[in-house]
Design a binder for these strands. Structure first.
Length: 544
RNA sequence: GGGCCGGUAGCUCAGCGGCAGAGCAGGGGACUUUUAAUCCCUGUGUCGUGGGUUCGAAUCCCACCCGGCUCACCA
């Protein structure tokens, strides 16, 4: 991801930078909408790494009108639709001051979990009453004709000549989505709260003059955006493709910044979205897409990595459902970590891979070398171990590493194990699942050759006699018996996997068998061997 | 209709003027404690199509085809 560092180099000599983004807290968030904030954070980190004094701002546009009734209780729809989000009561009733606070807080909590810590959150519902927006409101009203011209020219939207760029909050019903300003006399605006201005909310019919300052009115979206740039001195602001399209919101706000507020707009970093399975992300496209599920399965650093690895203007096609994309994401992350730690890695690495790793870390101040060098067991291996009862994953990881895990590595292991379990629950393809076929000998056992069947028969007899109790006991026995019948260990293990799991490979066989009912282990070995008490190998009684 | 992104090996993608690449999957082999481990070997693909520029094009230019997203009301 050299793009962030390139950007930083580009603005290095332009003085302090203010990076900004803002969001309307209209409701729930899906994973894809986190790409913007992650990019925002990476830009801020890259600027700081390049010695640029940087302020990271995040705004909550909570004076925007409530326009989604899905999250309102039915009796609240009529009264609340069209009112500023900050004035709508919290529907969840969990002690937030408003609907906007509730949703914004949930969003902010996600930020923190992803290592995103803006220097300041600002709330438009708090900014307007201070009068800070008044100069911009005045400018917008004075230059209403210019604004109308911009809409016509840039966005091909023709407003009536009486239209003024201001959203007054109706002094009678408190709604902002239903009002229209038709006149401005330099002190006051003429407001009409129309019953049917929009389909989604009802106006009260108010008609009169109000003073539009100090929180009595808000600027419409495109003007508010441009005014924020002026108010906060924003120099960089990434924008999703929904805004950054030609003739779209960003173009309009850019023109407004230049022609109405007379300020050069900030540098845009347009970014693409995250698609699920080549389709637009939504909670309805399958079990795979739900945001909370995704967050359970992908730890924060891998989620950051997912967003930061591709260039911002490349769409991310993520399809975790029934695929190995999540294990691959971990493998790729581990590869970047290994490379950053200076270890030899297979295959190619994109330019700037060290930066990608660094900016994927949760803690901006983390010791990159130590993080990169930390032991991380392979995700797919964990997913396998997680399916075997009685396995001590911590012990296994330690054995693999060859020395005790540090406390950090212990934490990584736990996080990753939880992710693996979540993946198995929600997304994993059938071939990644391991299940003991309890009912009958799996069909895959039919492929066993005579030597393997002999091994299973012998194993059954010996296990019946020795009663191995632990995984180690079983493991030793397996090797012993294999040696006894002159079968290479690899083929011996394959025989066990086919007989019990119906597949050619699996988790450590000794521990697998130790986790089963001893009588069952003995019986199944015998059944799958096709041996009879008479001692001759007959056909294997294969079941479903 | 406008905009953006993509179309390179079975899959995921890198390469973006100089001999078509990697990972994974697949195939073959080695390994007597190996556990989807490790190691070695294995890639003949109209680089979406058609033109053009160039000594040389997957790469630059033009046109087109296909796929996806997005904007065309508000935010």
């Amino acid at each position: 991801m050299d793009w962030a560092d390139e950007l930083a180099t580009r603005v290095r000599d332009s003085g302090p930078q203010v990076v900004n983004d803002s969001k309307t807290p209209s409701g729930t968030v899906h994973v894809g909408s986190l790409r913007g904030p992650v990019i925002l954070d990476a830009i801020a980190r890259a600027l700081r790494a390049n010695g640029v004094q940087t302020t990271l701002l995040y705004g909550v546009d909570d004076l925007d009108p409530m326009d989604a009734q899905a999250l309102l209780t039915p009796d609240a729809v009529g009264h609340e639709m069209g009112r500023p989000l900050a004035h709508v009561p919290d529907q969840a009733g969990d002690c937030h001051a408003s609907y906007a606070r509730h949703h914004a807080q949930r969003f902010i909590d996600i930020f923190a979990g992803l290592g995103i810590h803006p220097d300041r959150y600002y709330w438009m519902s708090e900014i307007y009453p201070t009068g800070a927006m008044d100069p911009y409101i005045r400018l917008a009203l004075d230059r209403a004709a210019v604004v109308r011209d911009i809409y016509r020219r840039v966005a091909n939207v023709q407003h009536p000549d009486t239209w003024h760029p201001l959203g007054a909050i109706c002094p009678n019903c408190g709604k902002v989505g239903t009002t229209i300003v038709t006149e401005w006399n330099g002190h006051q605006v003429h407001v009409e709260c129309r019953e049917r201005l929009v389909e989604w909310a009802r106006g009260c019919g108010f008609d009169g003059w109000i003073t539009p300052f100090g929180g009595a009115a808000k600027l419409p979206w495109n003007l508010e955006w441009a005014a924020q740039w002026s108010l906060f001195g924003v120099t960089i602001e990434p924008g999703g493709k929904d805004l950054s399209t030609a003739g779209g919101s960003r173009d309009r706000s850019d023109a407004i910044a230049r022609e109405v507020f007379e300020r050069e707009p900030p540098l845009n970093v347009p970014y693409e979205f995250l698609n699920i399975g080549g389709r637009k992300m939504s909670t309805s496209n399958g079990r795979g897409a739900a945001a909370h599920t995704m967050a359970e399965v992908i730890p924060p650093e891998q989620l950051r990595f997912l967003f930061l690895r591709p260039k911002p203007n490349h769409a991310i096609d993520f399809d975790p459902d029934g695929t190995d994309q999540i294990p691959r994401l971990f493998d790729e992350f581990d590869k970047f970590a290994a490379a950053t730690a200076g270890r030899e890695v297979k295959g190619d690495l994109p330019p700037g891979h060290e930066a990608t790793f660094r900016y994927s870390l949760l803690d901006p101040a983390a010791d990159v070398a130590s993080e990169a060098g930390a032991f991380r067991p392979a995700f797919s291996h964990l997913a396998l171990l997680a399916q075997v009862p009685g396995v001590d994953i911590g012990q296994r990881a330690e054995a693999e590493k060859g020395e005790p895990l540090t406390s950090r590595e212990q934490a990584l292991l736990e996080e990753r194990t939880a992710a693996a379990r979540g993946w198995l629950d929600a997304y994993a393809p059938e071939r990644a699942r391991v299940a003991v076929h309890e009912e009958a000998v799996p069909p895959e056992a039919a492929d066993l050759d005579v030597a393997q069947r002999r091994f299973l028969a012998e194993l059954s007899v010996r296990a019946g006699a020795d009663a191995p109790a632990s995984g180690d006991d079983w493991q030793t026995l397996i090797f012993e018996v294999a040696r006894g019948v002159d079968l290479p260990p690899r083929r011996a293990f394959e025989a066990i996997y086919r007989a019990f799991l119906g597949r050619a490979n699996g988790p450590r066989a000794g521990w697998l068998l130790a986790s089963l009912e001893p009588a069952f282990a003995v019986r199944r070995s015998w059944e799958a061997s096709g041996w009879t008490t008479a001692g001759s190998p007959g056909p294997i009684p294969v079941g479903g």
